[in-house]
Amino acid sequence: MLEPVKYVGGVYKHNHLVELVEDLGGYILQKNVMQTEVVLLMLVPINDMPVVEAKAKELLGKLTRAPLTGTEIATVAPTLAYHHLPHLDCDVAEFLRQHGAKTNMVGLARGVGKRICQITAYERDLINEHDLAVFILGNYEHCIIEKSKRLYEGIEIPIVVTGAPELKTEDVPNATAYVGNFGRILHHMRHSEELRTLDKLAEVIGKVLDNVRVELAKDPPSVAPPRIKKEIEEQIPDIINSLHPLPIALQMNGARVKLPYEEYHEQIENIKFVEGVTMKEVARVLPSKMRNFILIKALPKSETGFVI
């Protein structure tokens, strides 16, 4: 069992921690160096946590649990107009990012209104590539309920809805969870009660994702997503040249690789694992709806009959 954690500390000697985690069989998912500070998102074997904690303490860094690590979340706004951006959407996306998730912002083309809102097939497919979607809606109870009846049609991933009124999740049709106290906010969320609201959102999303993990564990993926990432990094050197932020974005049962599909999908399909299997035997390598990226979805154990 791997524990998702975030380390914030100085650049000096941080490679000691990186090496320790790798030696313990954990994974470094993301490393951001900002001048003299470094932020590491990593998965650490739960039994070895005390060792890592001791090392972090020795380096005068801070280690916190980041339950959203290794997930890709779509924050969806009805449109990309002043009504939603920059404040609320960016605040939510950035906050979830701080908790370890990779967030992508999606603005719908015709998502406005309670009667006239629509979602296109492309938008739906794009959102379905994520682990979870956060729909950021507005101020009025009636509108949120009416809109929820039709806007999420065809979306198969868990849906978390935000809005101003305090509603029960049962009252919001098709939503997996609802978080109140948001609404259409046109200022930067920085007051303490607003930050508490954001904390609540992260907590709710964490719970929803934990439930997904439990479901996933019943029929686990044949290959763990961090393993996919590690093998790609080792066997496809061109990934270093990808200038996208996070060239390999992890998902709960797969990964998004930011390389062109046409050129690289065969190379990725033929990646060899030391256990003697190739990538195409344990995962589906698909073209992503996002640009011409590659989407890898691990096959469940029930299909392959083994877990590596």
């Binding site: 101020n139 009025y140 109870e141 009636h142 101003a164 009124p165 609404g183 259409r184 906010i185 046109l186």
Partner: peptide, 21 residues
């Protein structure tokens, strides 16, 4: 004014923010 009191409150804040911006 609004039959939806929570909505009215957030609309009020929204108008204040916009006018200030």
């Amino acid at each position: 004014e609004s039959p939806d009191t929570v909505g009215a409150k957030s609309t009020r804040i929204l108008i204040q923010d916009t006018l200030a911006d």
